[in-house]
Amino acid sequence: MITLRINGLDVSVEQGSTLLEAARFLGFPIPTLCHMDGLSPYGACRVCVVEIGEEPKTKLVSSCTYPAEERLNVRTASARVLRARRMILELLLASCPQSKTIQDLASAHGIRQQRFKQEYEDCILCGLCVRMCEEQMMAKAIGFRNRGQNRSIGTPFDIKSDVCRLCGGCIYVCPACQLRCTYTQPDKAICGGCANLAPPCLEKEQFDDMMCYMDPCVACEVEKKAQKER
């Protein structure tokens, strides 16, 4: 067991657990975007920053990747942490303003205004879908491609992967909904869910209480638009 201090409380956690796990065990909430239980930690979104060390030599680390250390002093909601987290969220929001997950998180952190140019990207490159595909679905159908500014997630050669089983796990975990249904371009679809599986949302009248994990679903939107034009 490792004894460390989180927000002034001494706590013992098991060897090998991360700061995020320790803090959540104690009940201190730390927001995350790229973390999911059952997937390996990745540390991409940086929303889970915490402050570690003693004044004046403290530093910010991502709690999802930092292992708990003996007698470590951790602050999960200090002024410095909150300031950094707000900035990170504001930047994430600038790249993905349409993501409901990020919007909710940002407003929960008191962000009311957007100072940066909005990019309307579909992806924050958190790698959740890639890890989901590899670690839980054992498929390795999607991965990172290119580098730097051009980095993107998708299948090799941008064609439908042979190993993809259309499980939809990538869509399910996506916080920015990059991999939402590409209804109008079935060739480029990574899962092809909407085009191939006839999603329930298209028959909403028959199943009124259907749940859809894509909200709003592109397929529905396209359908609505087409109806309006008619």
Binding site: K140, A141, F144, R145, N146, P156
Partner: peptide
Amino acid sequence: PEKALRVVSDKTKHSLVDVYGVATFY
């Protein structure tokens, strides 16, 4: 060539995603 990358991923322990990722990274 695409075919060569597919052969590489078939014959080595690397998945096509990894091979493609490395090939596009550099």
